[in-house]
Design a protein around this nucleic acid. Structure first.
Lengths: 339, 339
DNA sequence: CCGCATCGTCGAAGCGCTTCGAAAGATCGC
DNA sequence: GCGATCTTTCGAAGCGCTTCGACGATGCGG
């Protein structure tokens, strides 16, 4: 491998001149620069990565922490990791993949050894162990997803409130008249993230605004059993359900509706909004408004690179507009009075 | 961040003593070593990654080249990348993820800058551009999958011949009497990889050995159209099909059989063997014997780490025993004469 | 025509670690 | 009891790069 010294010799200049000619950090005569560039090209010179890292105090590597939660599916994981990698390359960063147990331990390691300049935390849990870790790491970190306690963090996530409004609008526009929201469990609302609460409030507000009958329920177990019962008590003519809940509750919904002779979408339309799991593999796939991998990873990497480059890295939550994915679980209802 | 000098000072020894105490590369008195370890622990010392890389001429990073071919699905990609990462960690290596275009360019870059100590090439194409690249890179490389020209390469792949034999055995054991093989296109056999040929020979040999009627056909387009016609001409009572072909031909099979009133598995059983794509999402999912991510990535990383550590890295093809994945496309046939 | 910027280039000092050779003690045989 | 040998530790030389300060050369105004 050619070193910078080889290039310097070939171009008849000093090592520092080569460095400046290649980095452009000091002015160099055009003629000299061309000679250096030609020599570098000739020799196929590429700077030795670790030497550069050591001297420049910068690795140009971003760590991607990706535990593989059973809730999310592999294809979704891949999409996020890949997007992060793709965007990172555009900023001239490589990505180190940290999976499973190493998603946690690797964060500590790559930060402490200064292997990574920054960290992107994927597949964030409400009560994620990587949150306190990130706080004490002294390494720029961006979360894709919002945990319960966001104190001091930079997070990118779906705009929950917009998702709630859009879900209500979809149903109302399609002629639904009685809409139920299956939210998170009570405990989650009280001691967990404030995002389920914000979703809930936006849902209520939008239902009021559109003048549609509605009801809200919180599951008490891991199925939608009680929730469906309570919704039907309040809204006997229930024809639309919005899900902003956990994967197990959501996946049980179709079967539970079936026990009451209700079928999706024939009798009830369903939209899963602001959920982090995929609904594609459900027996009946639901329309959903997920966190978009492309948009969120682009935003996350942009924020991270800014932070690494010393621009501001103040704690904040960046909310991205939802994208609606139609899987056929919402159909138009004849409005009362129509044929 | 604490440096080795801090540890040395705290332990009251020289820098080199700390280095040797931590690496174990020279003998150090137990008492001294304990003092050093205690000091390192106390200070939370972890060696600076790039300094170590530079001095030791080793990055402890493995690059994972993963273009994302449309043929393979995302979940499969993820499985391979993750397994590679997991196994690499067990050897104390981190993985750099190179995707899309960068799967190629990144290989060159990470090898030339000595960012990576070795490369794992995933999702290998028959005629893969990364093959000639790997040859001139002077960086240990292992392919997971077998390209057409394997000259000078280290590859890990499925044992095609065993897969062919096992496919025939399955069908014969389940009472099938007329088995057809849909192989690759003629051109592929003549100028491409020799693995389709080896599969074909093993298929023929096993059919002879089991004394079952059989026929072979090569598709001429991108569907199984002509192949099915030719097979039925030679075997009017065709009841089993083995696929060792491309994704597009395989995915067209069910529909083409349907035009002749044949249904899988009611009338014809199907096994896809030694194919690199997934059949899980086909309208009718086929039983398959794919390259196992866990086994192949483990083997690949083991080989790679050996090569990096200076043990032998002689070109070779490592073939792994196939695993049968049952998706219900093979059912038992009543043998002639049975009720 | 001299002093003072300005510009382009160079030399050298690190960055934090590994590793070689050697020094200093300890141990042993004769 | 003294040289030979072995053990344990140290000092210093890099690894290949970035970057700071300095230096000679040029251009300018007074």
């Amino acid at each position: 491998m050619a070193t910078i010294a080889d290039v310097a010799q070939a171009a008849g200049v000093s090592i520092s001149t080569v460095s400046y000619a290649l980095s452009g950090k000091r002015s160099i005569t055009a003629e000299t620069r061309d000679r250096v560039l030609a020599a570098a090209d000739e020799l196929g010179y590429l700077p030795h990565a670790s030497a550069r890292m050591l001297a420049a105090h910068r690795s140009h590597i971003i760590a991607v922490s990706e535990p593989v939660h059973p809730d999310t599916d592999d294809a979704a994981h891949m999409a996020f990791a890949m997007q992060t990698t793709r965007v990172a390359r555009e900023h001239n960063y490589d990505t180190l993949l940290l999976v499973h147990d190493d998603a946690f331990e690797g964060m500590r390691r790559s930060a402490a050894t200064q292997l990574a300049d920054g960290i992107v935390v994927l597949d964030v849990d409400v009560d994620d162990a990587r949150v306190p870790l990130a706080r004490k790491l002294a390494c720029p970190t961006v979360f894709v997803g919002v945990p319960a306690d966001t104190e001091g963090l930079v997070c990118v996530d779906l705009d929950f409130e917009a998702a709630a409004r859009q879900a209500v609008d979809r149903l109302v526009d399609a002629g639904h008249t009685q809409i139920g929201l299956i939210s998170h469990r009570e405990e989650t609302l009280t001691r967990g993230s404030n995002f389920p609460i914000r979703f809930l409030h936006a849902f209520l507000a939008q239902c009021e605004a559109r003048g549609v009958r509605h009801a809200v329920t919180h599951p008490n177990g891991h199925t939608a059993d009680g929730s469906v019962r309570r919704l039907l008590e309040q809204l006997p003519g229930l024809d639309g359900i919005v899900l902003n809940t956990t994967a197990d509750v959501a996946s049980s919904l179709s079967a539970i509706l079936a026990t009451r002779g209700l079928e999706v979408p024939r009798d009830v339309s369903v939209i899963a909004a602001g959920v982090s799991f995929t609904t594609a593999r459900f027996a009946v796939p639901f329309d959903t408004m997920p966190l978009d991998a492309h948009a969120s990873c682009t935003a996350a990497v942009d924020l991270l690179v800014q932070a690494i480059d010393g621009a501001e890295h103040t704690p904040r939550i960046v909310l991205l507009p939802p994208t609606y994915i139609d899987r056929g679980s919402v159909i138009a209802r004849a409005t009362p009075g129509s044929p």
